[in-house]
Design a protein around this nucleic acid. Structure first.
Length: 425
RNA sequence: GGAGGGGUGGCUGAGUGGUCGAAAGCGGCGGUCUUGAAAACCGUUGAGCCUUCGGGUUCCAUGGGUUCGAAUCCCAUCCCCUCCGCCA
């Protein structure tokens, strides 16, 4: 949700900023109309309520002294019907206003590149050199099945398209990566490990912005109000929903390993081969709650925490800042990490790190009390993948493959693989 | 699944129809005392919304209802706890 104060004070600026994000029409104009309708009906209904409360008090006093309050009771009756009438108008304006507010994306920070899609993303830095192969590197969808560690056909048999089964060293590698990432973030980056529910309710999804707009991207459990978690960002960010934290509790830093479930509606024909785009994948997520003053720095740090994983695995990658047209709904600034995949001769997204400022905090009513004891303020929330485990597994397989068809286990992972140095062969 | 109990402010916990946004304690903040701190004592301390900035209004799990008037009575829903059954 955007700040109401900002919408009232600078509606034109908000409209321009939303246009950068591809929001069509005149939602801000409509917002201003609804806000005015809402406020005038509130003023009216509150004045009527004031008179009603006064009359009720008078009735109490009259009855206490044994008098006759017939006239006053009649007056309250009249006021009540008028209150009901105006209250209906207020509720209608409020409902449309809230629906509108929940549908508007966050505004991009001023330095975010403006553009319609990923072509406008800004390259920040490239880290590590893609390795030169003296043979034709295989894509993981060939390499994995050949080594018997990835099985797309059997995954499809028990579930369907976009599901995969991992066997032996493949399953172990997935687990090793997860453990490695969690250990890194908890012991070196100051995150508290959380194991959150994998089924979550609609309120949580509204809090982080997946609902009400992106319901079709989610799996919903039939006959219940639950959804399969699409990213640990949702449960982690919502853990403190509705709370007022103390400033000295900030920053809150949580990391969690969870499976992530996505319907991938609308991505027909995209990344149909391999592990890149699955209905279920595992991810280690990083979430921070900070003061407004520190979220910029926190995003840089959080991005660095995710990068550290790639550095320790010695995988080449680059960092891009997403353009206004490519950013997610709730983000004010997003850095994507893209890892080099030799099998595809391309950099592919492996982490997305975002500062949502107060956008999610407003939705989730997530505040903190300043140390000086002042009024509660909304926190800033940040999240990032640290990293998508399945895609990291792909990157390891493709970057560490050898001419003899085997895969070298990266040094950093060997303690988690029982000392295994090589997969296959 | 069956039976029962309960959801009140940052926390504990009173309050069963009117002046209750709500006792008391703890915690927080300010002060007295002290070289300093602790203790003690005094004062203060919820959040949202509207505002002509005087004030008004709403909130005691959530949503309805009864009543001139609801934290308090009724209904539904959600959540938590205890016991029984089942179960990893």
């Amino acid at each position: 949700m955007l700040s109401r104060d900002l919408l009232r004070e600078k509606p034109e600026a908000v409209a321009r900023s939303l246009a950068d994000r591809g929001v069509e029409g005149e939602p801000v104009v409509r917002w201003v109309e609804l806000d005015e309708a809402r406020r005038s009906s509130i003023a009216e209904v509150e004045e009527l309520k004031r008179r009603r409360n006064e009359a009720s008090k008078a009735i109490g006093a009259i009855k206490k002294s044994g008098g006759d309050a017939t006239d006053e009771i009649a007056e309250v009756g009249t006021l009540k019907s008028r209150i009901e009438e105006v209250e209906t108008r207020r509720a209608e304006a409020e409902e449309e206003l809230e629906a509108l507010e929940l549908s508007l994306p966050n505004l991009a920070k001023p330095d975010v590149p403006v553009g319609p899609d990923e072509a406008s993303n800004r390259l920040e830095r490239t880290v590590g050199e893609p390795r030169r192969f003296d043979f034709e590197p295989e894509a993981h969808w060939d390499l994995g099945p050949r080594l018997g560690i990835l099985d797309f056909e059997r995954g499809a048999r028990v579930a369907g398209a976009r599901f995969t089964a991992l066997f032996g060293a493949g399953a172990r590698l997935e687990r090793a990566l997860s453990q490695f990432m969690l250990d890194l973030h908890t012991t070196e980056h100051g995150y508290t490990e959380v194991l959150p529910p994998f089924l979550i309710n609609a309120d949580a999804l509204v809090g982080t912005g997946q609902l009400p707009k992106f319901e079709e991207d989610l799996f919903k459990v039939q006959g219940t109000g639950y959804y399969l978690v699409p990213t640990a960002e949702v449960p982690l960010t919502n853990l403190h929903r509705g709370e007022i934290l103390e400033e000295d509790e900030l920053p809150v830093r949580y990391t969690a390993w969870t499976p992530c479930f996505r319907s991938e509606a609308g991505s027909y024909g995209k990344d149909v081969r391999g592990l890149i785009r699955q209905h279920q994948f595992q991810k280690v997520e990083l979430v921070q709650l900070t003061t407004p003053e520190t979220s910029d720095r926190a995003l840089a740090e959080l991005t660095g925490h995710a990068e550290r994983v790639l550095q320790l695995l010695e995988l080449p990658y680059r960092v891009v800042t997403l353009s206004t047209g490519d950013m997610g709904f709730g983000a004010a600034r997003t850095h994507d990490l893209e890892v080099w995949l030799p099998g595809q001769q391309a950099y592919r997204e492996i982490s997305s790190c975002s500062d949502c400022e107060a956008f999610q905090a407003r939705r989730a009513n997530l505040r903190y009390r300043p140390a000086d004891g002042g009024k509660p303020r909304f926190v800033h929330s940040l999240n990032g993948s640290g990293l998508a485990v399945g895609r990291t597994l792909v990157a390891v397989l493709e970057n560490y493959q050898e001419a003899n068809g085997t895969v070298t286990v990266p040094q950093a992972l060997r303690p988690y693989m029982g000392g295994l140095e090589r997969i296959g062969g």
